[in-house]
């Protein structure tokens, strides 16, 4: 009987190492997680564990979000925040891409820049806020500069590491087919790294959002962070939470956008899980 059990029938168990999950199940599980989370929140908020004013239920937060949009022109704040993230991230990526590419492709370049770039990663960007305020004032430039500093050194390192991992055989194959250095760099090294670069952009964009709030809390008249600070002054906890929810929603949407981009641009990477 013991042996009979060990000769395993196909197991119905879903929890197994590396077992893929069907799309339906994934959606069901994801939605369920949210329902449970919101249910516990709603219950805790209405059960009078804390004053409602300081701990509003999700329903109140959602209606606060609606009034923010309909009566307080919240869309202007959202746009201001999106603009800051977009501009600073585009600048940081445009700076980090060529540097990371050359550092990853040519060890000589890395030997020169690495000692310079590595320590910068350990400097917390918010530590630069006083300097930036003195140099650039309290306007948009200072905020964009902070966001830029928050991600740029990580971007350089991540891009360089990823580019370095392009398989040498691909490069050598191109060389024996007569490719020039430029053709190898653009047509093989960059091209092979591209899907990974989109992933890096997606992940670092999330980091950029966390710095956005820091930047807007310091000195800002508009933006999601500024709205949150305003609401705090009037102890409008529901509006503070609505601001946080908005950031979450925007982050999620951007993440999905980048995933979609990845899916559309790299059809060959879709069945990646199939092979070693």
């Amino acid at each position: 009987m013991y042996i009979g059990r060990r000769q395993s029938r196909p197991r119905a168990v879903r929890i197994a190492f590396q077992r893929p999950v069907s799309v339906t199940l994934r959606v069901v599980l994801g939605v369920a997680a949210w329902f449970i989370f919101l249910g516990i929140w709603q219950y805790a908020a209405t059960a009078d564990l804390a004053p409602q004013r300081l701990f509003p239920p999700p329903t109140q937060v959602i209606s606060a979000l609606e009034t923010l949009f309909s009566e307080q022109n919240f869309q202007a704040d959202v746009l201001a925040s999106l603009r800051r993230v977009a501009i600073s991230f585009a600048l940081a990526f445009a700076f980090a891409l060529p540097l990371g590419l050359f550092m990853g492709a040519f060890p000589v370049v890395a030997a020169f820049f690495n000692p310079l770039v590595s320590p910068f990663r350990y400097l917390p960007a918010p530590a630069f806020i006083p300097l930036l305020l003195m140099w650039l004032g309290a306007g948009d430039t200072q905020k964009i500069a902070l966001l830029f500093l928050g991600v740029v050194w990580f971007l350089v390192t991540l891009i360089a590491d990823h580019v370095r991992s392009v398989r040498m055989e691909l490069i050598e194959t191109a060389l024996t087919l007569g490719a020039s250095t430029r053709q190898v760099l653009g047509g093989v090294v960059f091209r092979a790294s591209l899907p990974g670069l989109v992933d890096i952009a997606r992940q670092m964009l999330a980091v950029s959002w966390t710095y956005l709030i820091i930047a807007e809390i310091v000195a800002a008249t508009d933006g999601i962070g500024a709205m949150i600070m305003r609401a705090r002054r009037f102890v409008r906890v529901d509006e503070v939470m609505a601001g946080i929810v908005m950031i979450g929603i925007l982050g999620l949407l951007l993440d999905l956008l980048f995933r979609l981009l990845h899916w559309k641009l790299f059809p060959y990477a879709r069945q990646r899980s199939r092979k070693p």
Partner: peptide, 30 residues
């Protein structure tokens, strides 16, 4: 290295972002 000496490696070296025909035509294209 140069195009007068073509090399086939032991490991797989197809360019994953190119289709089969684009891979075969890669040398001629560059």
């Amino acid at each position: 290295p140069g195009r007068d000496r073509g090399m086939v490696f032991q490991t797989y070296t197809s360019f994953p972002w190119l289709t089969v025909e684009e891979n075969v035509g890669y040398g001629l294209r560059i």
